[in-house]
Write a protein that binds this DNA or RNA. Structure first.
Lengths: 140, 140
DNA sequence: AAGGTTTTTAGAACCATTCTAAAAAAGAAA
DNA sequence: TTTCTTTTTTAGAATGGTTCTAAAAACCTT
């Protein structure tokens, strides 16, 4: 999908169709907020606040439900960098992260910016599902 | 510190001295449980259960207090791999992890088993504090 | 429009962790 | 040792992000 600006209504229809989700006002609103040109990182609470500020009426429970549905559909991924809170990431390509600990900010690191030349032997009976590199930063 | 077996009382004294912590029964018990030959990964709840099973009387609050004190003293580090729970790791050397998602098990990966040949440019005004590689596994 | 299904919602529940404030233990001084 | 002060431990309450519940609203089909 091309994402160089805000999605049109028909693009959102397509997105929800692909995700096999019914079209509802809340899902369309969230999709419109999330899937723009720029990838973003956010928590459920942040998104909730943002939606209310934008004048949408949506409950926190629906935010959580929808984020998980989007995630199952492969439209979002979770990033775990801090105890007690989950970040969501609209970038679902394999990639890595800077995490600025001072202010809890996540930044994407493209996959090819980290070259891993040696990998450990994988325990038998296991497959790699995903590999996360988190570079934790402190401000000078 | 040499850790090829259970620590002696005087080694524990030294450990607490170095950490600038007073010697108390609970801290000594936990130190004895934790700092053995093998490094280990555990949560506060797991350690609490283990201590009670070993016949020690120690509250969960003290487990948390002590783990944080040990961490500040550089004797433990935290590992964040799952939402809503924190693992502690007795291995404080720079290293990485396998995380077996099926059963929530963490395994150490030595630093030299992952060779990173290219790093992204660090955002200006920032320093690297730490770099975590988490290889998420699924059982076949 | 009616009927059956899915979605949304407010608020309760959950659970790992932190906080509180009072009791217990430790250390210092006499 | 006894007393005094400080630190530590503790049970239980509080917290905060997330999930659950069950009832109302929205949705879809006929």
């Amino acid at each position: 999908m091309v994402r160089n600006m805000v999605l049109t209504t028909s693009e959102i229809d397509k997105l929800l169709d692909n995700a096999k989700l019914r079209h509802t006002k809340q899902r369309a609103q969230l999709a419109k907020m999330l899937f723009k040109a720029e990838n973003r990182h956010f928590t459920a609470e942040q998104l909730h606040k943002e939606a209310r500020t934008a004048g949408h009426t949506i409950s926190l429970a629906t935010i959580y439900n929808t984020l998980h549905q989007f995630r199952s559909a492969g439209l979002l991924r979770q990033v775990i960098v801090e105890p007690g809170k989950v970040y969501f990431d609209t970038n679902t390509e394999p990639h890595h992260h800077f995490y600025i600990e001072d202010d809890g900010e996540l930044l994407d690191v493209e996959r090819n910016e980290v070259k891993i030349s040696t990998l450990p032997e994988i325990p038998k009976n296991c497959n790699i599902r995903e590999m996360d590199v988190i570079i934790r930063l402190r401000k000078k």
